[in-house]
Design a protein around this nucleic acid. Structure first.
Lengths: 192, 192
DNA sequence: CTCATAATCTAGACGATGCAAAGATATAGC
DNA sequence: GCTATATCTTTGCATCGTCTAGATTATGAG
């Protein structure tokens, strides 16, 4: 009843372990050796699958971006085509994801430890951002790729992203319930 | 010509060394031992002044907040009382600081490694945020501490902070010069 | 001025980490 | 069946944060 020498599916098992560690102990608790321990393999096993720690973090961030994209698309789909402000629904979903998975969210957006040239991460991030761009383009009557169009998109993204980051870092005022504050802030999301 | 056993002013020397390391090598290059090396003392010397790594990082973040506040106030003062949008000037100064000291900025807002209960950090951050709040209150005709007033403030803060963070993480579109994009985004900063 | 006490700094050790090299074991292709 | 390759382990090394004990200097009470 001893474990087999070969794990069989180590890479996904390590990613799952890494995600669990990230959620429980934050980014500082997510180490190569800890992930290996959780997965029940030696501490050098991850190297062969991810190269180094940056590799593991990048692949995990890619998983996060894929999940992020799905979350955003689901929210958009549920909001209906005739909803007054589908962009608000996406903004709410954006912040909701950040609140549900704060450590994963920070990992995804913290360029520090990530290798953005990794194909998996590059593609996953690009597709998630494409979903965001599409939502902004939909909200604007005719999407303009000029300065004003970009400024509209970046203003919307900055507003939502800034709120999410400040929320995670505990900078939100506590005099008012979070949901009410979020709704009121998202109401300022209208494009111009 | 040997160095004296007692440094004389180790704490500020360590802070200066820490800041230099942070700017040059990022947060990962800022270690207790590296700071001690740069300051020319043994690796255990910082302990007596800052307790642990969190202590050093927190004190450095406090320095950052003090400098941040000064930077914001200077920009506000230079913009003049009759400027069309002093809030825009402050937003520009906010992003300017983030661009000039990206690693310090990230350290200040990354709750991870900081001890926010430290008096120095607590006070410095509070005063910096007070300057921000004052600017928003000035921009609004009559400052309202209700939900809409808070939402105005948080929307402005989120917009500027989100832009700064996305800029540092390299998420800004490159089809357009940064300054033009920033100006166009800050133009969306008007309160409602 | 003296000298005991406190503050400051050094030296060494411990466990943990990331990474590299070398060996063991199982899988897969021929 | 046999060999090449992929997968995993073991071992080793440098670095890190932190702890403990000891050395050195500043300080201040008498």
């Amino acid at each position: 009843m001893k474990p087999p020498y070969h794990h069989g599916a180590l890479a996904p098992a390590l990613l799952a372990a890494a995600e669990a560690l990230l959620e429980r102990d934050g980014i500082t608790g997510l180490t190569l050796r800890a992930a290996a321990r959780v997965a029940g393999v030696s501490h050098a096993a991850p190297t062969h699958h991810f190269g180094d720690l940056t590799g593991l973090l990048s692949e995990l961030a890619a998983v996060g971006y894929r999940r992020f994209r799905e979350h955003l698309l689901t929210a958009m789909a549920q909001s209906g085509p005739d909803d007054p402000a589908p962009l608000v629904a996406m903004g709410a979903a954006y912040v909701e994801f950040a609140r549900a998975h704060p450590n994963l969210f920070l990992l995804m957006f913290r360029g520090d430890r990530l290798d953005h040239e990794r194909p998996a991460l590059r593609d996953a991030a690009q597709q998630a951002f494409a979903a965001l761009r599409a939502a902004v383009a939909d909200a604007s009557e005719q999407p303009r790729p000029d300065l004003d169009g970009l400024a509209n998109a970046m203003a919307a993204w900055s507003l939502v992203h800034g709120f999410a980051v400040l929320m995670i870092d505990g900078r939100l005022p506590r005099e008012v319930p979070m949901d009410a504050l979020l709704s009121a802030v998202l109401a300022r999301l209208a494009l111009r």
